[in-house]
């Protein structure tokens, strides 16, 4: 038994067919472990998002293997992949993807509702998750009444409320100003360190580097560098608006 929550071995992924065929991943080995915040960095088209989708069970690898909490994804159908995501993975999206007609609490509660947790207890857990990200005063607000940073914190609360083993964040600070970006990264780092979750952040943003325990660089579908010698958070490379 190891600490790895997600393990990818020799993962290849080909997208498209014929003339449009693209080898997005060409033999990637990557493991995410509990208590660690990993940054996945690389230029556009390097395969970052494809790797995130494969690790997050949205895509199955063309070859190689991925296991999430010990469950292999290779032969899983769409519903089985959805079940793995539901049970083990929390997602944070760049564009938040909150439901505009639901309150902050209801948005968070959705993550419990799809897992079969309903009613007052689910609502209370959702409010607690919002309090954890500093939004106890905004529990009844609609997303339209929240700032970008607040919306992203709601999205993080939604990703965390069901206690997933791994949190995958796609450019979580991409649409935020410096202060909000810093706040979001601090929450994600706390999630990794204090809540003992595996956190993977896909980013272009060099300002998030101080929050990382490990930095993985990908280029042309291959991991070209992995390092842990990043500057320490919180303020070595401060966020600025």
């Amino acid at each position: 038994m190891n600490d790895y929550v997600v393990e990818a071995k020799s993962v290849e992924k080909t997208l498209g067919r014929g003339a449009g065929e693209v080898h997005a991943l060409r033999g990637v080995d990557l493991a995410l472990r509990r208590g660690e915040l990993t940054l996945l960095m690389g230029p556009s088209g390097s395969g970052k998002t494809t790797l995130l989708l494969v690790l997050g069970c949205m895509l199955t690898p063309s070859s190689g293997s991925v296991t999430v909490c010990g469950t292999p994804t290779a032969d899983a159908d769409k519903e089985a992949l959805a079940r793995i995501r539901r049970e083990h993975v929390g997602f944070v999206f760049q564009s938040y993807h909150l439901f505009p007609t639901l309150t902050a609490t209801q948005n968070v509660q959705l993550a419990l509702d799809i897992r079969g947790e309903h009613g007052g207890r689910a609502a209370q857990k959702s409010r607690d998750a919002l309090a954890m990200v500093g939004l106890e005063q905004k529990v009844d607000s609609l997303p339209g009444g929240l700032s970008g940073g607040e919306q992203q914190r709601v999205a993080i609360a939604r990703a965390l409320v069901a206690n997933p083993s791994v949190v995958l964040a796609d450019e979580p600070t991409g649409a935020l100003d410096g202060k909000n970006g810093q706040s979001i990264m601090r929450i994600l780092a706390d999630t990794a360190h204090e809540r003992e979750r595996a956190v993977l952040v896909v980013t272009h943003d060099p300002r998030v580097v101080p929050y990382a325990d490990r930095i993985v660089e990908i280029e042309d579908g291959l991991i070209v560098q992995e390092r842990t010698d990043r500057p320490r958070m919180p303020t070595a490379v401060p966020f600025r608006a």
């Binding site: 997050g56 949205m58 769409k78 519903e79 959805a82 079940r83 793995i84 995501r85 539901r86 049970e87 993975v89 997602f91 999206f93 993807h97 439901f99 959705l110 993550a111 799809i114 897992r115 939604r158």
Partner: peptide
């Protein structure tokens, strides 16, 4: 987009 988000979060069909 909302239904896709639900699906991404792991909701069943």
């Amino acid at each position: 987009n909302e239904f896709a988000t639900l699906r991404a979060m792991g909701s069943s069909n």
